[in-house]
Nucleic acid binder design. Structure first.
Lengths: 136, 136
DNA sequence: GAATTTCCTATTAAAACAGTAGGGTTAATA
DNA sequence: TATTAACCCTACTGTTTTAATAGGAAATTC
Protein backbone atom coordinates (compact mmCIF):
# COMPACT_ATOMS: atom_id res chain seq x y z
CA UNK A 1 0.00 0.00 0.00
CA UNK A 2 1.09 3.50 -0.80
CA UNK A 3 1.88 5.54 2.32
CA UNK A 4 -0.03 8.72 3.04
CA UNK A 5 3.29 10.49 2.99
CA UNK A 6 3.74 9.68 -0.68
CA UNK A 7 0.09 10.33 -1.44
CA UNK A 8 0.20 13.76 0.16
CA UNK A 9 3.54 14.55 -1.38
CA UNK A 10 2.24 13.81 -4.87
CA UNK A 11 -0.86 15.89 -4.25
CA UNK A 12 1.21 18.81 -3.02
CA UNK A 13 3.50 18.64 -6.06
CA UNK A 14 0.52 18.52 -8.37
CA UNK A 15 -1.03 21.46 -6.56
CA UNK A 16 2.12 23.50 -7.03
CA UNK A 17 2.35 22.49 -10.68
CA UNK A 18 -1.19 23.69 -11.30
CA UNK A 19 -0.46 27.25 -10.15
CA UNK A 20 -0.37 29.77 -12.98
CA UNK A 21 2.11 32.13 -11.42
CA UNK A 22 5.15 30.50 -9.96
CA UNK A 23 5.15 32.49 -6.75
CA UNK A 24 5.59 30.77 -3.36
CA UNK A 25 2.53 29.03 -1.89
CA UNK A 26 2.39 28.69 1.91
CA UNK A 27 2.15 25.19 3.36
CA UNK A 28 -1.08 26.21 5.09
CA UNK A 29 -2.75 26.89 1.75
CA UNK A 30 -1.77 23.55 0.27
CA UNK A 31 -2.78 21.70 3.42
CA UNK A 32 -6.18 23.41 3.51
CA UNK A 33 -6.91 22.82 -0.19
CA UNK A 34 -5.80 19.21 -0.21
CA UNK A 35 -7.12 18.19 3.20
CA UNK A 36 -3.78 17.38 4.72
CA UNK A 37 -2.52 17.89 8.28
CA UNK A 38 -0.34 20.98 8.06
CA UNK A 39 2.45 19.75 10.31
CA UNK A 40 2.62 16.44 8.48
CA UNK A 41 2.76 18.17 5.13
CA UNK A 42 5.50 20.39 6.50
CA UNK A 43 7.80 17.43 7.00
CA UNK A 44 6.86 15.93 3.65
CA UNK A 45 7.74 19.10 1.76
CA UNK A 46 10.98 19.29 3.66
CA UNK A 47 11.80 15.80 2.44
CA UNK A 48 10.79 16.64 -1.11
CA UNK A 49 13.07 19.63 -1.12
CA UNK A 50 15.99 17.21 -1.18
CA UNK A 51 15.11 16.25 -4.75
CA UNK A 52 16.12 19.70 -5.93
CA UNK A 53 12.84 20.22 -7.77
CA UNK A 54 11.32 22.26 -4.99
CA UNK A 55 12.29 25.70 -3.72
CA UNK A 56 11.18 27.49 -0.58
CA UNK A 57 11.11 30.97 0.83
CA UNK A 58 10.71 31.94 4.47
CA UNK A 59 8.81 34.83 6.02
CA UNK A 60 5.81 36.73 4.79
CA UNK A 61 4.98 36.01 1.17
CA UNK A 62 7.02 32.85 1.52
CA UNK A 63 6.14 29.25 0.78
CA UNK A 64 7.01 26.50 -1.67
CA UNK A 65 7.33 26.60 -5.43
CA UNK A 66 8.60 24.38 -8.23
CA UNK A 67 12.07 25.11 -9.48
CA UNK A 68 11.80 22.95 -12.57
CA UNK A 69 9.12 22.44 -15.18
CA UNK A 70 6.71 19.59 -14.29
CA UNK A 71 7.79 17.76 -17.45
CA UNK A 72 11.30 17.59 -16.04
CA UNK A 73 10.24 15.97 -12.78
CA UNK A 74 10.27 12.18 -13.18
CA UNK A 75 8.35 9.93 -10.83
CA UNK A 76 11.40 7.75 -10.19
CA UNK A 77 12.97 10.46 -8.05
CA UNK A 78 9.76 11.45 -6.33
CA UNK A 79 8.84 7.89 -5.44
CA UNK A 80 12.32 7.03 -4.17
CA UNK A 81 12.44 10.07 -1.91
CA UNK A 82 8.94 9.66 -0.51
CA UNK A 83 8.24 5.94 -0.61
CA UNK A 84 11.76 4.52 -0.61
CA UNK A 85 12.99 1.69 -2.85
CA UNK A 86 10.89 0.91 -5.90
CA UNK A 87 11.81 -2.77 -5.61
CA UNK A 88 9.70 -4.94 -3.32
CA UNK A 89 12.71 -6.88 -2.05
CA UNK A 90 16.12 -5.43 -1.37
CA UNK A 91 17.93 -8.08 -3.43
CA UNK A 92 16.52 -6.62 -6.67
CA UNK A 93 16.91 -2.97 -5.72
CA UNK A 94 19.10 -0.78 -7.90
CA UNK A 95 19.60 2.03 -5.41
CA UNK A 96 19.17 0.21 -2.11
CA UNK A 97 20.62 -3.24 -2.87
CA UNK A 98 21.11 -5.64 0.02
CA UNK A 99 21.58 -9.37 0.04
CA UNK A 100 18.85 -11.52 1.60
CA UNK A 101 20.26 -13.30 4.61
CA UNK A 102 17.99 -16.33 4.32
CA UNK A 103 18.57 -16.91 0.62
CA UNK A 104 21.55 -19.12 -0.31
CA UNK A 105 21.47 -18.40 -4.06
CA UNK A 106 19.97 -15.32 -5.65
CA UNK A 107 20.00 -16.70 -9.18
CA UNK A 108 17.87 -19.71 -8.34
CA UNK A 109 15.49 -17.87 -6.01
CA UNK A 110 11.91 -17.74 -7.27
CA UNK A 111 11.11 -14.62 -5.26
CA UNK A 112 14.08 -12.86 -6.79
CA UNK A 113 13.01 -13.90 -10.27
CA UNK A 114 9.47 -12.62 -9.88
CA UNK A 115 10.34 -9.41 -8.10
CA UNK A 116 12.90 -8.55 -10.75
CA UNK A 117 10.14 -8.52 -13.34
CA UNK A 118 7.87 -6.46 -11.12
CA UNK A 119 10.61 -3.94 -10.44
CA UNK A 120 11.37 -3.57 -14.13
CA UNK A 121 7.76 -2.93 -15.02
CA UNK A 122 7.28 -0.40 -12.21
CA UNK A 123 10.51 1.32 -13.13
CA UNK A 124 9.40 1.69 -16.72
CA UNK A 125 6.23 3.44 -15.59
CA UNK A 126 8.02 5.78 -13.21
CA UNK A 127 10.74 6.60 -15.71
CA UNK A 128 8.25 7.47 -18.39
CA UNK A 129 5.95 9.50 -16.19
CA UNK A 130 6.64 13.06 -15.14
CA UNK A 131 4.65 15.41 -12.95
CA UNK A 132 3.27 16.99 -16.12
CA UNK A 133 1.58 13.69 -17.04
CA UNK A 134 -0.37 13.72 -13.80
CA UNK A 135 -2.01 17.10 -14.30
CA UNK A 136 -5.71 17.08 -15.23
CA UNK B 1 8.09 -4.07 0.68
CA UNK B 2 7.07 -7.66 0.16
CA UNK B 3 5.89 -9.32 3.37
CA UNK B 4 7.68 -12.42 4.62
CA UNK B 5 4.37 -14.20 4.41
CA UNK B 6 4.36 -13.79 0.63
CA UNK B 7 8.05 -14.51 0.37
CA UNK B 8 7.75 -17.75 2.32
CA UNK B 9 4.58 -18.72 0.48
CA UNK B 10 6.29 -18.35 -2.88
CA UNK B 11 9.28 -20.33 -1.69
CA UNK B 12 7.04 -23.10 -0.43
CA UNK B 13 5.13 -23.27 -3.71
CA UNK B 14 8.36 -23.39 -5.67
CA UNK B 15 9.66 -26.10 -3.39
CA UNK B 16 6.56 -28.20 -4.04
CA UNK B 17 6.77 -27.57 -7.78
CA UNK B 18 10.36 -28.81 -7.85
CA UNK B 19 9.49 -32.22 -6.44
CA UNK B 20 9.75 -35.01 -9.00
CA UNK B 21 7.08 -37.22 -7.56
CA UNK B 22 3.91 -35.43 -6.63
CA UNK B 23 3.54 -37.10 -3.28
CA UNK B 24 2.67 -35.09 -0.15
CA UNK B 25 5.50 -33.19 1.55
CA UNK B 26 5.17 -32.51 5.30
CA UNK B 27 5.24 -28.87 6.42
CA UNK B 28 8.23 -29.68 8.61
CA UNK B 29 10.30 -30.69 5.57
CA UNK B 30 9.52 -27.50 3.66
CA UNK B 31 10.20 -25.36 6.71
CA UNK B 32 13.56 -27.03 7.34
CA UNK B 33 14.71 -26.82 3.71
CA UNK B 34 13.66 -23.21 3.20
CA UNK B 35 14.60 -21.86 6.62
CA UNK B 36 11.09 -20.91 7.67
CA UNK B 37 9.43 -21.03 11.09
CA UNK B 38 7.22 -24.10 10.96
CA UNK B 39 4.24 -22.59 12.74
CA UNK B 40 4.33 -19.53 10.54
CA UNK B 41 4.53 -21.65 7.42
CA UNK B 42 1.60 -23.69 8.68
CA UNK B 43 -0.65 -20.66 8.60
CA UNK B 44 0.69 -19.58 5.22
CA UNK B 45 -0.01 -22.93 3.60
CA UNK B 46 -3.46 -22.92 5.13
CA UNK B 47 -4.08 -19.59 3.44
CA UNK B 48 -2.66 -20.81 0.15
CA UNK B 49 -4.96 -23.81 0.16
CA UNK B 50 -7.83 -21.41 -0.50
CA UNK B 51 -6.52 -20.81 -4.02
CA UNK B 52 -7.41 -24.35 -4.98
CA UNK B 53 -3.95 -25.04 -6.36
CA UNK B 54 -2.79 -26.78 -3.24
CA UNK B 55 -3.92 -30.09 -1.81
CA UNK B 56 -3.19 -31.65 1.55
CA UNK B 57 -3.32 -35.02 3.13
CA UNK B 58 -3.48 -35.75 6.83
CA UNK B 59 -1.81 -38.50 8.81
CA UNK B 60 1.36 -40.44 8.19
CA UNK B 61 2.73 -39.92 4.71
CA UNK B 62 0.66 -36.76 4.59
CA UNK B 63 1.60 -33.20 3.72
CA UNK B 64 1.07 -30.67 0.96
CA UNK B 65 1.20 -31.15 -2.79
CA UNK B 66 0.27 -29.22 -5.92
CA UNK B 67 -3.05 -30.11 -7.49
CA UNK B 68 -2.38 -28.27 -10.75
CA UNK B 69 0.59 -28.04 -13.04
CA UNK B 70 2.90 -25.10 -12.16
CA UNK B 71 2.20 -23.61 -15.59
CA UNK B 72 -1.45 -23.30 -14.62
CA UNK B 73 -0.77 -21.35 -11.44
CA UNK B 74 -0.73 -17.62 -12.22
CA UNK B 75 0.93 -15.14 -9.90
CA UNK B 76 -2.15 -12.92 -9.83
CA UNK B 77 -3.98 -15.39 -7.61
CA UNK B 78 -0.98 -16.20 -5.45
CA UNK B 79 -0.14 -12.54 -4.83
CA UNK B 80 -3.72 -11.57 -4.05
CA UNK B 81 -4.14 -14.35 -1.52
CA UNK B 82 -0.81 -13.79 0.20
CA UNK B 83 -0.06 -10.08 -0.19
CA UNK B 84 -3.54 -8.68 -0.73
CA UNK B 85 -4.49 -6.13 -3.37
CA UNK B 86 -2.08 -5.66 -6.26
CA UNK B 87 -3.00 -1.99 -6.49
CA UNK B 88 -1.16 0.42 -4.20
CA UNK B 89 -4.27 2.47 -3.50
CA UNK B 90 -7.76 1.07 -3.06
CA UNK B 91 -9.30 3.46 -5.58
CA UNK B 92 -7.55 1.68 -8.45
CA UNK B 93 -8.04 -1.85 -7.18
CA UNK B 94 -9.98 -4.28 -9.33
CA UNK B 95 -10.78 -6.81 -6.63
CA UNK B 96 -10.69 -4.64 -3.51
CA UNK B 97 -12.04 -1.31 -4.80
CA UNK B 98 -12.84 1.37 -2.24
CA UNK B 99 -13.30 5.08 -2.69
CA UNK B 100 -10.74 7.40 -1.07
CA UNK B 101 -12.46 9.46 1.57
CA UNK B 102 -10.18 12.46 1.19
CA UNK B 103 -10.36 12.64 -2.60
CA UNK B 104 -13.21 14.71 -4.07
CA UNK B 105 -12.73 13.61 -7.69
CA UNK B 106 -11.06 10.40 -8.79
CA UNK B 107 -10.70 11.40 -12.43
CA UNK B 108 -8.66 14.50 -11.68
CA UNK B 109 -6.55 12.92 -8.93
CA UNK B 110 -2.87 12.70 -9.76
CA UNK B 111 -2.29 9.82 -7.36
CA UNK B 112 -5.08 7.88 -9.00
CA UNK B 113 -3.63 8.56 -12.42
CA UNK B 114 -0.16 7.36 -11.50
CA UNK B 115 -1.24 4.35 -9.50
CA UNK B 116 -3.49 3.18 -12.30
CA UNK B 117 -0.45 2.90 -14.55
CA UNK B 118 1.54 1.11 -11.88
CA UNK B 119 -1.28 -1.34 -11.25
CA UNK B 120 -1.62 -2.11 -14.94
CA UNK B 121 2.06 -2.81 -15.34
CA UNK B 122 2.21 -5.02 -12.25
CA UNK B 123 -0.90 -6.85 -13.33
CA UNK B 124 0.59 -7.59 -16.70
CA UNK B 125 3.60 -9.18 -15.05
CA UNK B 126 1.55 -11.27 -12.64
CA UNK B 127 -0.88 -12.38 -15.35
CA UNK B 128 1.90 -13.50 -17.62
CA UNK B 129 3.93 -15.26 -14.97
CA UNK B 130 3.10 -18.70 -13.64
CA UNK B 131 4.80 -20.77 -11.00
CA UNK B 132 6.52 -22.68 -13.83
CA UNK B 133 8.32 -19.50 -14.87
CA UNK B 134 9.90 -19.18 -11.44
CA UNK B 135 11.55 -22.60 -11.42
CA UNK B 136 15.33 -22.68 -11.92
C1' DG C 1 10.73 44.62 16.27
C1' DA C 2 6.45 42.21 15.37
C1' DA C 3 4.44 39.02 12.35
C1' DT C 4 4.91 35.40 9.24
C1' DT C 5 6.53 31.18 7.54
C1' DT C 6 9.95 27.74 6.93
C1' DC C 7 13.14 24.61 9.41
C1' DC C 8 14.28 21.12 12.79
C1' DT C 9 13.96 17.89 16.76
C1' DA C 10 11.35 15.12 19.79
C1' DT C 11 7.60 12.47 21.23
C1' DT C 12 3.51 9.62 20.78
C1' DA C 13 -0.54 6.66 19.56
C1' DA C 14 -2.01 3.27 16.81
C1' DA C 15 -1.47 -0.25 13.62
C1' DA C 16 0.92 -3.85 11.13
C1' DC C 17 4.34 -7.47 10.93
C1' DA C 18 6.54 -11.61 12.21
C1' DG C 19 6.47 -14.54 14.73
C1' DT C 20 5.85 -17.74 19.39
C1' DA C 21 3.17 -20.74 22.36
C1' DG C 22 -0.23 -23.87 23.27
C1' DG C 23 -3.85 -26.91 22.76
C1' DG C 24 -7.41 -29.58 20.79
C1' DT C 25 -9.57 -32.00 16.46
C1' DT C 26 -9.56 -34.85 12.47
C1' DA C 27 -7.95 -38.10 9.22
C1' DA C 28 -4.87 -41.55 7.48
C1' DT C 29 -1.45 -45.24 8.00
C1' DA C 30 0.85 -49.16 9.95
C1' DT D 1 -5.29 -48.98 18.23
C1' DA D 2 -1.16 -46.10 18.33
C1' DT D 3 1.22 -42.85 15.73
C1' DT D 4 1.67 -39.32 12.58
C1' DA D 5 0.66 -35.02 10.62
C1' DA D 6 -2.57 -31.74 8.87
C1' DC D 7 -6.20 -28.65 10.59
C1' DC D 8 -7.88 -24.91 13.28
C1' DC D 9 -8.19 -21.73 16.98
C1' DT D 10 -6.84 -18.33 20.51
C1' DA D 11 -3.82 -15.34 22.48
C1' DC D 12 0.28 -13.03 23.44
C1' DT D 13 4.78 -10.53 22.41
C1' DG D 14 8.35 -7.71 20.56
C1' DT D 15 9.65 -4.82 16.89
C1' DT D 16 8.93 -1.62 13.31
C1' DT D 17 6.37 1.63 10.63
C1' DT D 18 2.98 5.02 10.09
C1' DA D 19 0.78 9.27 10.81
C1' DA D 20 0.73 12.56 13.28
C1' DT D 21 1.49 16.26 17.20
C1' DA D 22 4.16 19.68 19.94
C1' DG D 23 7.36 23.13 20.59
C1' DG D 24 10.67 26.08 19.41
C1' DA D 25 14.60 28.11 16.32
C1' DA D 26 15.82 30.66 12.24
C1' DA D 27 14.95 33.55 8.40
C1' DT D 28 12.37 37.06 6.01
C1' DT D 29 9.18 40.90 5.36
C1' DC D 30 6.80 45.05 6.63
Amino acid sequence: MLSKKTKYGLKALTFLAKQDKKEPIPIADIAAQENISQKFLESILLTLRRTGYLGSKKGKGGGYYLIKDPSEIPMTTVMRVLEGPIAMVSCVSLNFYEQCEDCPDEQSCSVHKLMLKVRDSALEVYRNTTLADLLP
